[in-house]
Amino acid sequence: MDRPWNNKAWFLVLPVLALVAISAVIPLMTVVNYAFNDTFGNNQFFWAGLEWFDEMIHSSRLHGALGRQILFSAIILAIEVPLGIFIALNMPKNKGFWSSLCLVLMALPLLIPFNVVGTIWQIFGRVDIGLLGRTLSALGVDYNYVSDPIDAWITVIVMDVWHWTSLVALLCFAGLQSIPQAYYQAAKIDQASRWAVFRHIELPKMKGVLLIAVLLRFMDSFMIYTEPFVVTGGGPGNATTFLSIDLAKMATGQFDLGPAAAFSLMYFLVILLISWVFYTVMTNLDRDETSGEAK
């Protein structure tokens, strides 16, 4: 749709601008302030320049958290994306009560408060009272997510798969539904294999939504905080301390404001970069959509 140029539209945007300025720009300026200054309280600040950035870039603690974060996000994507596609392909396509029920049940984990997700998995995984912990122990598996780092990792990952795979599946399903039935009939006439149908019909149609799903999952897993915090508290040791957990510890636990602020800004730059990729994908999708209508 071609939109006319009208700067009066700014008045319509003004409320949003004012509100988001309060809730984003001012706090961000505070962070910037802390990142470049040192303080001993009493609102006295001393210019520290890039000292905090230097400290953070060379901090092994940050490297550890970043490494764990990247590994976590990579594992999450490697499991959730293929599984999500697989589930989407198996979802009932007709619109009836059962397919609606499927949708609702699948979406259920997405609507659970993050701390309750943690609580659910804590209760489910505990060796003394949890179904999972008890079953694994009964099978002779030495499983205890409280003391064993590997078990803690597995628990956090399974929890995230449980929590978010449905998002990938629902998005892919939305993409699949836009495929006209005629495509499948043509494939049938050509005697295309199941794989060929997937590779040449379904996957190209899902490409856009899949990209959104991957980016959303990446972003959200990159800033995961509450769920692992409730289940493992970042432990055992530092085994499941991801970036946000580390940052919260540093800022609100130890009040190391300078380093925490420098950390925040670098964190934010990464987010900005990924947001830009996301934005480009979105606007390209919008353009494809409108050019498709024009045909």
Binding site: R3, P4, W5, N6, N7, K8, A9, W10, V13, V16, L17, V20, S23, A24, P27, L28, T30, V31, M219, F222, M223, Y225, L243, S244, I245, L247, A248, A251, T252, L257, A260, S264, Y267, F268, I271, L272, I274, S275, W276, F278, Y279
Partner: peptide
Amino acid sequence: YRFLGDKHLFFWLLTNRMAPPAVFAL
């Protein structure tokens, strides 16, 4: 409508959706 800085503004809004709450807590 299109207006001065609309694309930047739209993008900037998105970055706030993507911002980690941990950065903003303090």
